[in-house]
């Protein structure tokens, strides 16, 4: 297994561990995306993040991967610390698995990953309020449509 692949697997295990024993095993090891959607989402996006960590650190790609991970973790029974904190476990994993990175500012890269994770976590929490509002508006959708119709405005 390549170094990035090993790092990704170790990081996945750390991320899954936040859920507790039983689910951690399930989330990290079962590869069927439909029997194990949590593990599938973590696996594919952590692999993308590891590629960036060892590569170009493209901000858009990092944000996209954390957007999917944080969509999940921000609505689960995880405190903010547990939802986001796993990012920092990459420090020890990288030091152990990729000591050759010493020439690169690995800590700086991990800080940038962590900032993206926090940004996406907050964005997900903000979206919840928007979702609730839109759902309420749809619940009275016909009344709103009638009001718009009587004003001659598009519904």
């Amino acid at each position: 297994m390549s170094v990035p692949a090993t790092v990704a697997e170790r990081w996945l295990a750390a991320a899954a561990a936040a859920y507790g024993g039983l689910i951690a095993e399930h989330a990290a090891t079962w590869r069927d995306p439909f029997r194990n959607p949590i593990g599938h989402t973590l696996r594919r996006n952590l692999a993308a993040l590891v590629r960036e960590f060892f590569g170009a650190m493209d901000e858009a790609s990092i944000d996209a991967a954390f957007a999917e991970i944080m969509a999940l973790r921000s609505i689960q029974d995880l405190s903010v610390e547990r939802a986001v904190g796993f990012v920092f476990t990459l420090r020890d994993i990288a030091r152990e698995q990729a000591p050759q990175m010493q020439g690169v500012d690995a800590d700086g890269r991990i800080d940038r990953l962590a900032l993206s994770a926090f940004r996406q976590y907050l964005a997900c929490r903000e979206r919840l309020a928007e979702l609730k509002l839109n759902e309420q508006l749809r619940a009275i959708g016909v009344a709103r449509r009638r009001a718009a119709h009587s004003r001659g405005a598009p519904a």
């Binding site: 297994m1 170094v3 090993t6 697997e9 170790r10 996945l12 295990a13 899954a16 561990a17 507790g20 024993g21 039983l22 951690a24 095993e25 990290a28 090891t29």
Partner: peptide, 16 residues
């Protein structure tokens, strides 16, 4: 590094 996945998960029952 061996081909074996390096997953190292503590296999324990949920707390409590």
């Amino acid at each position: 590094m061996a081909d074996k996945p390096a997953i190292d998960i503590e296999l324990k029952a949920p707390k409590g």
